[in-house]
Amino acid sequence: MPNVMLRYNDKGELLFYVAKKDLEEVITSIETDDGASWGGTVELSNGDRFFIDPISPPPEFPTTLRFKRG
């Protein structure tokens, strides 16, 4: 259950950053992001997948959230 810092990069993509693992990847897809809620399985540019129960209303970035390995 890593603590993940989420922030936008210069290109406006959402970055997924885990300090302890030096993991800094762009989120390529997210299961639910329909304006009402945000979450589900996220996929990163390196192919890793993580999961978070959908949050509604969607969180404001940058923020830190806890994800599960998915």
Binding site: M5, R7, Y17, A19, P62, T63, T64
Partner: peptide, 9 residues
Amino acid sequence: NYISRYMEE
């Protein structure tokens, strides 16, 4: 970078 990320958040 740690404190910078914190201040951003």
